[in-house]
């Protein structure tokens, strides 16, 4: 953890949909500090959504302890939701209402000062479609509308479920910059995704979850340092021919081979290579992200 005030604390969390020993989430523990972006990474059906639903009160807490903004979710009042924002993966808006109406009516549910709907729509590039019915929006526009709605109450804790899923690169970049900006303002962000690139770029720490269990929690950099093999890709000319080799920076024999190449051959390019977070995930969990 990065230190500071704990905004979310989960201890020994278990959940079974059938109320038996078949747990969708088992023995899950983690903490998230104020202002931290915490990535919850795993393939579909790993237990990401179940954990998030328990944190936001859409699933009952069966076993374990969960506190959100200092409040035990078992005993928390509805007013806790004044400080929470949730962006769902599946767009769930009123199709017969316009974008601005969807945000306006939603803003009236909160007991705290809320953002101007038009300002939020502008932030996500929907200002021109603000007065169009949501039923006329494309999937990407609906995704952005849901994302904008989740910011309406200026949440202290922001739950984002696959916020860039199905978005084009430009929109993805816009969403990422909004997330970073919110972090700067002190918002704590719980990011559920199976997109490792997004997680790598945005998250201070990530948790890998498969089969309902967390197998690693750390910053992307520490995970790479701990589990990734540092490599060097070398392109060189030998006996008049262009050749390419990838050598380990850890293995003594391969380090010697690199020295040989540098002294004997004409090295054209040389790049250090880091393992990607996805490769680390596969290495740790033995599963691919799908």
């Amino acid at each position: 953890m990065t230190g500071g005030i704990e905004m979310i604390k989960v201890r020994d969390l278990y959940h079974s949909y059938n109320n038996n020993e078949q747990y969708a989430v088992k023995n899950v523990s983690f903490e998230i500090a104020k202002g931290e972006i915490f990535g919850f990474l795993g393939p579909s059906g790993a237990g990401k959504s179940t954990t998030q639903k328990i944190l936001i009160g859409l699933l009952p807490l069966q076993k374990g302890n969960v506190t959100v903004d200092g409040a035990d979710v078992r005993k928390s009042s509805r007013e806790l939701f004044d400080s929470i924002g949730v962006s769902f993966e599946r767009p769930n808006v009123y199709k017969k209402l316009t974008g601005v109406e969807n945000l306006k009516f939603y803003s009236e549910m909160f007991g705290v000062p809320t953002e101007d709907p038009l300002k939020l729509l502008k932030m996500v590039g929907l200002e021109d479609a603000a007065h169009k019915k949501a039923g006329e929006y494309s999937k990407g526009m609906l995704q952005r509308l849901v994302f904008a709605r989740s910011m309406i109450n200026n949440p202290k804790i922001w739950f984002l479920d696959e916020p860039t899923s199905g978005l084009d690169p430009n929109t993805t970049s816009m969403i990422k910059s909004i997330i970073r900006e919110k972090q700067k303002q002190g918002t704590t962000i719980f990011l559920t995704t199976h997109n490792m690139h997004i997680a790598e770029e945005l998250c201070d720490r990530v948790a890998f979850i498969t089969n309902g269990e967390i197998s690693a929690i750390d910053s992307p950099r520490s995970l790479k340092l701990s589990f990734g093999e540092r490599l060097v890709a070398v392109e060189y000319i030998e006996d008049g021919k262009s050749k390419k080799e990838t050598l380990s920076m850890v293995d003594a024999g391969q380090k010697q081979r690199l020295n040989d190449l540098i002294t004997r051959c004409k090295v054209e390019t040389m790049h250090t290579q880091e393992a990607t977070l996805e490769e680390i995930f596969i290495k740790i969990t033995g599963k691919e992200l799908k």
Binding site: E79, F81, V86, N92, V93, M109, V146, R149
Partner: peptide, 14 residues
């Protein structure tokens, strides 16, 4: 079908 109730359930309304 629209799933809108879930959005409202994560707001302070009962």
């Amino acid at each position: 079908e629209e799933g809108t109730i879930k959005a409202y359930l994560v707001s302070p309304i009962r």
